[in-house]
Computed example of a mutant assay.
Amino acid sequence: MSAPGPLDRWYESAGVRTGVRRMFHEGAEQGLVFFPEALVPHLAHEAVRALPPERRRELTIRHLYQFLIATTHLETRVVNRAAEPIANGRTGLPLTTALRQDAFKVYCDEGYHALYSLDLADQIATVTGIPIPVRDYGGFVEQLAVAAREPLPDQPELAGLLQAVVFETLITAVLNEVPNDTTVVRPVRDLMRDHAKDEGRHHRFFAAFFQELWAGLTPQLRRRAALALPDLIHAALRWDLGPVADSLRLAGLDADTTRAVLADCFAPSTGANRISEISRSTLRLCASVGAFDLPGVREAFAARGLYEVDEGP
């Protein structure tokens, strides 16, 4: 008998099957923040610390909006773009029917995650009176695509699959940073917890799929894929600065101060330790298929501040 799969109990446990709608009621959330302040890099900048408390509060709300609405784009335009060919057997790999059905389950989950992320953002905007800025929160999707296309210009399908594997093996660690932070409003914590439960199963699905994908690559493509992974990891964890700049200007900072805050708080070297910690599971997955044994791969990861980790839990 084969080992149970990560989505075997999907009908009984998936959020889209069993979850409840998370509702925001401002009166019950007085004194709490909308996003962990430690995860909003620009809040620590001296120019931002000098703002009135209500402007700083608005910054955390708009940071949450960016996280939630960016999620809708990631789930539907990155993950589901990869889940669909897996589900419909269009990857060129000899996939089992069970794995293809699991890919459809992922597809359903991701649409639901996009729905409830937009729903909560809209609820908060309605209740607080702080509107969601009118802008494209999905501009970073093209940045992700460029990060995938540059090392694999002749392999767009493979690039998309690798992009989804990277994102889905990183996202659970990101989501788990919020639910236990009692300074954050409860509906946000609950939604992140709901999302993390589903993504934990998706992580295991995409890790298993990556093993199948890797086994089907030629030695040459394996090395090219492995060399692409460090940039894909960084691209998946890089904040889109357009919405951040909008938020800072709406808070009252002029253009020069906004540029200074972005340069100080979002420089390429900032957040390196956090990126390294969040990517540990992804690096273990790379190690499990022998990616670090290929020429130049260990050096490529190290150049990005990413180092091979033990394959333990």
Rank of each mutant, 00 (worst) to 15 (best):
V309A: 13
L237R: 00
S281H: 13
T72I: 05
G305H: 05
A226F: 01
L217Y: 09
F67W: 08
R135G: 10
A291T: 11
I275R: 04
L68V: 06
G129A: 06
A291L: 13
G129C: 03
L253A: 07
I86D: 08
P94C: 11
G19Y: 04
D122I: 02
A260P: 05
I233Y: 00
I171G: 04
Q211W: 06
D102R: 15
P268W: 10
L250T: 05
V309T: 14
D264A: 15
H42R: 11
T71A: 12
E75K: 13
F34I: 07
Q101W: 09
A236S: 15
P268L: 13
P36Y: 09
A300I: 02
L120S: 05
T218Q: 09
A98F: 04
L283M: 12
V134C: 03
L227C: 12
P187E: 00
F209D: 11
L294A: 07
A260E: 09
E299P: 06
F266S: 09
C286T: 08
P94K: 14
D256Q: 10
L152H: 05
L59H: 12
N180M: 10
C286S: 14
G139R: 11
T128D: 04
C286P: 04
L213E: 10
G305R: 03
Q155H: 15
P243Y: 02
L7F: 08
E29F: 00
D198P: 07
P6A: 10
D154N: 10
E84T: 15
A267P: 07
Q30D: 07
T270V: 10
R298P: 01
A114E: 03
A47S: 14
A207R: 15
G252M: 03
R17G: 00
D264W: 07
G216T: 09
R201I: 06
F301E: 03
L118K: 01
G305K: 02
G160K: 11
Y307E: 06
L241P: 06
A215H: 13
A87N: 06
D122Q: 08
H195G: 04
F104M: 15
Q163P: 03
T218Y: 05
R149T: 10
D136C: 05
N80W: 07
N273S: 14
T71Q: 11
L161V: 11
V165P: 04
F24R: 13
L32A: 14
E29I: 08
R193T: 02
K105C: 11
A226T: 09
A225E: 04
V261Q: 04
F206R: 09
A70E: 12
V33S: 10
G305C: 03
A251W: 00
I132W: 02
G200D: 05
F35K: 15
R9A: 14
P187M: 02
Q143I: 00
A228E: 01
F206V: 04
L241S: 01
G129P: 03
R149P: 03
E54W: 11
I61L: 14
A272L: 06
V166H: 06
